[in-house]
Design a protein around this nucleic acid. Structure first.
Length: 232
DNA sequence: GCGACAG
DNA sequence: ATCTTGTCGC
């Protein structure tokens, strides 16, 4: 993907919310909810941290079998868009696409800390990114953006997340002491597979390894940047 | 009109 | 997301 395509999909500047909504719909036209991936060797996780007017986007790549980190990269950019529910893809998208392109070990799939098709028009960050970049993605969030579900109680239990009569994901009780996490397909991953893959990546913590490690990595990168700044 | 609302 | 220490519970 070149810079023009990058800006086409991820640059919100000089565009109205109406135009951004049109862009989301355009990406969604490419959406596939069928498994469009082969054997998964590597899976990446993404998460962003913020400070001042900057966004720190971290992306570790893990071996799918061992869940060990193979490579990790992060990038710092100026925040170009505010947080507006249902438009998160335009706040974090460009930074995520930028780190992704710098990876030497491309993952077969990416796990996001955000929504997938569990979004008013199915354009959650994971889905939008996957459709625009044509990469299999899964969304894992901690709060429901839209939809309703029963509450899973036993560890490992899942309940369907429904929105407008359709299943758009799951609520999964991943840990004994944590509230359920929300799992949803992003792009090229079925509703069933999204749950299986997230379960495979659980190691006893609330969040699956790709996302959990991405969160820690983004936090430590931010901390180091701030400490470096203090020394000057 | 009111409330809800990923990060 | 971010500002932040201790503290209750398993």
């Amino acid at each position: 993907m070149n810079n023009n395509e990058l800006d086409y999909w991820f640059d919100p500047s000089s565009r109205t919310l109406e135009e951004l909504r049109v862009l989301q719909n355009k990406a969604i036209e490419k959406l596939s909810l069928e498994d469009g991936f082969g054997k998964i060797d590597r899976i990446a996780g993404v998460d962003c941290a913020y400070f001042e007017d900057r966004i720190v986007c971290a992306m570790p790549v893990l071996d799918y079998n061992t869940l060990e980190v193979i490579e990790k990269k992060y990038i710092v950019q100026k925040v170009a868009f505010p947080y507006i529910p249902t438009y998160l893809n335009f706040r974090e998208g460009k930074a995520i696409a930028s780190v992704f392109m710098e990876l030497e070990n491309k993952p077969d799939m990416i796990m996001f800390d955000s929504c997938g098709i569990n979004h008013p028009i199915k354009a959650g960050m994971a889905t939008y990114f996957g459709a625009a970049m044509d990469i299999p993605t899964i969304g894992v969030s901690k709060k429901i953006l839209c939809g309703d579900s029963e509450t899973p109680v036993e560890v490992g239990e899942s309940q369907k997340l429904m929105y407008e009569g359709n299943q758009v994901g799951w609520l999964l009780k991943s840990n004994k002491r944590s509230n359920p996490i929300i799992v949803a397909p992003g792009h090229k991953v079925s509703v069933e597979s999204s749950l299986e893959i997230v379960k495979h990546c659980l190691k006893g913590y609330k969040l699956p390894e790709p996302t959990r490690l991405a969160h820690m990595y983004a936090a430590e990168a931010k901390k180091e940047i701030l400490e470096q700044k203090d020394r000057n």
